[in-house]
Amino acid sequence: MTIQSADTAWERMLLEREIERFLYDEAALLDERRFSEWGDLLAEDIHYHMPIRRNVKFGEQHRENTDTESEISWFDEGKRTLMGRVRQLNTGVHWPEEPFSRVRHIVTNVRVMSVDGDEVEVSSNFFVWSNRLRDECVMFIGTRSDILRRDSETGWKIAKRLILLDQNVLLAKVFSTFF
């Protein structure tokens, strides 16, 4: 099925199912610590952005999430840095993940929002649980807005990911997983 033909209800349903499966498979790669394979899912030009969430006055909601143009975010980077993070995780001496935490990515509320040629805009929610050493527990809950791009040879690639974490002051000591 090509995306361009996703104009009937049946085709839209198939596409959504295909995208869901992609996101679940992606989550499994992270949970199974197959970080290099996860890196293969990233488009060369990916923009990976997790803004800081502000408390703002009513009417100023446009300022709620820090922008990528001039402000500071938690993550705001491309593939080179993300692959650097993968290499760091794979050293065995990256202390917040040595020994590895038990991380589980729960991906829900998957919605294909629009289709544009080979690219689809997908919204999904996440609940990331991390349990570390004896009893350290961290929860990350939020929503993502992705642009996924179909590569005819290698399958879906993540071309853009905007991650809205539902926290203001971060209540975890580090981000040592991906979202």
Binding site: M50, S70, I72, S73, W74, F75, D76, E77, T81, G84, R85, Q88, H94, W95, P96, E136, L170, A172, K173, V174, F175, S176
Partner: peptide, 26 residues
Amino acid sequence: DAKRRYVMRYCGPAGITESDDMENWN
């Protein structure tokens, strides 16, 4: 922009350098 991207990947809880400090102090 270039400097901003550098400080974000270096520092803070997602900082590739600082995240190792956090575990030890923790």
